[in-house]
Design a protein around this nucleic acid. Structure first.
Lengths: 329, 329
DNA sequence: AGGTGCGATGTAATCGATTACACGACGTCG
DNA sequence: CGACGTCGTGTAATCGATTACATCGCACCT
């Protein structure tokens, strides 16, 4: 506010030059042992803190990474962001967050204003032209635009869909409904296609209901489903929230899960284990995803080299709980 | 990366001085109309972007606010952070997030490193000495340390507890259990005290179970509760998650909510409406909380004046759903 | 003795935008 | 006609830390 202690003040207090103070703080090894002590004492006495704007300007970097997600309020991103923050924090980087939907008009600037050294992108729906114009390292996490070719990290969604289908088929279900995610969303498409392929291979009759990952869309799908003459006996929802919506609506309609219909979710959010019934779902290792992405980006930044290109898929697994059961007679 | 387009490059391209370029960008009104056009064209042609580090250094501000929460992965903070980001974004400020637990050792520096102009603090458990040393505007949101006296904003937790008690008493319940939040947490204490006071006034027999807001603690409380000889017929949980844990455990034990026991939660997280049964709970207006806090902080920053002191309480209300019912004969 | 090398420190340029101050041109008014 | 205000623009100081380069002293070697 009032007192702005500069490095020059510390230098004066310690009777050395500003260069020596700077070196003491950032590279103590090169400074004489007793000078070092004198400087540290002066730093202590003055209460000096580096001015990061000045340092950032001189060093041409921001010591900050940006996490860009389509909807910050979404439960799913919470833990990922928390993990990224943890990794970044211990590397001395700060984390800024932005909502790629709310900030749609400002997106382009985010990669150009120099406030961030790198970006972790959790939104696969951004225009590739914008991404291409960014001049900083970007890593796509969980989803990506198939037209772009940035480094990325995600789970193998097709394989995950297969796990769900196999589980339901093993339980004896012959007709399975998939409540899909929004058209155009890469995750939604990959899961749906994985579902259709696996269902065909297992000889399971597959049908698709429109959805958008939300509970509301799950509830809607339930109302449609219930009025079908040939109701599938099992449902694979593209997200846990969607599954919750479906189950809640079934409950309201007096239909029992898993007695009357089996339901598999996707994500394994924290609530899944405590829902009623506890939800059988695909577990996404969100901590690993967040950690890997952050580490990969930060390593590139600190080693001052570009991100290694290439997309990496990691395995998800199925967590069997109580929302699925063998097909009734 | 390679090309660093500086304001000087734009100036050269437009045949004016750097001062004129700067003025055109930040205060167009003072620049001649045709000069302005020439500069804008040059900006366009060169693809110039301001270097925020340089601007921040010169203007002694960061155009950024920091949101500090005890657990970024917590569902409850998601929407608040999203709202803050939205408000800040449209004011041209960026939002950085940090976890006050994971970053415990670095907290003090966050208020001193000049990366943020102000802080929104969602953690009431920080040492007041640290807060006192920060030299930037801080607003406490949702909870605060009673020993500190920073500007703050929260719902009236005691009044909210009264709403819950009144509701249960009106339904005929004479014995109510409160599953409290962690000792030492201001929210937990205020809610518990509010509960005890209201219960006494309504002539309701009150008892308290230990908890810590988590689903696990709710489940634990359910197991304790079930073995009591004089089971209370209603439960008021200090958080929705805790209520979910309680209900899920009841379900596992074959006890029905609300037939055998009524449950009221606290927060009204997104899932509350879709739980089975849909949860009767205290609605916290998270969007309003986030928006008000952000607006109050940002107004102070842009008008270049200190935050008005004082704590503000806003009303929460009760949302009656299906987890509560009249006491059975 | 003189040269070489190394370790410790200082001097000053640099990062890039903002802005106080100065200046010139032009119009208005007494 | 000269004083004065206004408008538009340029010059250069400034924000504060980092760091390339220069300097100095001392030890060690031939």
């Amino acid at each position: 506010m009032n007192k702005n202690i500069r490095i020059a003040d510390v230098a004066r207090a310690a009777g050395v030059s500003t260069a020596t103070v700077s070196r003491t703080l950032s590279n103590p090894a090169v400074v004489g042992i007793e000078t070092r002590a004198r400087v540290m004492a002066a730093v202590e006495a003055t209460g000096y803190r580096v001015n990061t704007a000045a340092r950032d300007l001189r060093q041409r970097r921001a010591r900050s990474i940006l996490v860009l997600a389509p909807n910050l309020a979404n439960t799913f991103f919470g833990r990922i962001i928390a993990t990224i923050q943890e990794v970044a924090g211990s590397a001395g980087l700060s984390v800024q967050v932005s909502d790629s939907r709310a900030e749609a008009g400002r997106i382009e600037a985010l990669g150009h204003d120099g406030r961030a050294d790198g970006i972790i992108l959790l939104d696969g729906s951004l225009a590739p032209e914008i991404l291409a114009r960014w001049r900083l390292p970007v890593i796509e996490l969980c989803e990506w635009n198939t037209r772009a070719t940035l480094p990325g990290l995600a789970i193998d969604n097709a394989a995950a869909a297969r796990l769900a289908v196999d589980h339901l088929a093993d339980l004896g279900h012959r007709r399975v409904l998939h409540i899909a995610g929004p058209e155009g969303n890469v995750l939604a498409v990959t899961r749906r296609d994985g579902f259709l392929t696996s269902a065909a291979q297992r000889g399971v009759a597959a049908s698709i209901a429109a959805g958008d990952f939300t509970m509301a869309s799950g509830a809607r799908a339930a109302r449609d489903w219930v009025s079908r003459p040939d109701r599938p006996s099992a449902v694979f929802a593209a997200s846990d929230e969607c599954a919750f919506g479906f189950i809640a609506e079934c409950h309201r309609m007096g239909i029992s899960v898993p007695d009357d219909v089996s339901v598999v979710g996707f994500d394994d959010v924290d609530f899944a284990d405590h829902y009623i019934p506890a939800l059988t779902t695909i577990h996404q290792p969100r901590v690993r995803l967040g950690r890997f992405a952050a580490q990969r980006l930060i390593a590139a930044l600190t080693e001052h080299r570009p991100l290694a290109p290439g997309r990496e898929l990691i395995d998800a697994h199925l967590v069997v709980r109580h929302s699925t059961a063998p097909l009734q007679g």
